[in-house]
Amino acid sequence: MVQAEKQRDRIGAKYGMWLFLFTEILFFGGMFLLYSVYRSKYPVEFHASAAEENLLLGSINTAVLLTSSLFIAVAISAVKKGNYRLSVILQGATILMGIVFLGIKAVEWFEKIARGIYPNSPVLDKMSMGEILFFGLYYVMTGIHGLHVLIGVCVIAFMVYFTLTGNITRENFSKIENTGLYWHFVDIVWIYLFPLFYLIT
């Protein structure tokens, strides 16, 4: 009976996380809505602006995030198999990948800011309306996505601590499983952001 209750709790926790991810889909959905409307209004400007994005850095970042997803997925399987050492190493690798992602993102941002392209800047305000909107959306969408990555990094850091202290075990892995779901979701958002901002040239 006690066992059954525990099982129920775990599935409940997973449901809760999925429900949260559904809300995230609609949260980002609002941004994709804006993007699609403005892109349909200013297709030429959007194409021209996307050409200014650094495709190489964007592609590397995609690879980094996809790889981090592999790491956290294996880390969770490792916990379920009782291989905590491997799990901790891979969680650490995921954190590292997250930080690399944010670092590259920061380089891209600063490179643009150095050229005077940022919301409300004199340079940007002189550009065409389509370009103002494109770069506005770029900063907002990658910024909010980056914030999600940052939160994910912090949460995984806690998971490392929990795994080390025996709070996460092969019988009790809801926390890290839900963290994994969140991290994969953030990955999926980037999978869509990448073509929308870097590949529509």
Binding site: L19, F22, T23, E24, I25, L26, F27, F28, G29, G30, M31, L34, P119, N120, I132, L133, G136, L137, Y139, V140, I144
Partner: peptide, 25 residues
Amino acid sequence: QLLATPVLAITLVFIILGRVFGVGF
């Protein structure tokens, strides 16, 4: 609550970004 409120959340974020950073969506 689950499926509608996030849309409000992002809309309000746009207002805040508009006021603080001048993002003119």
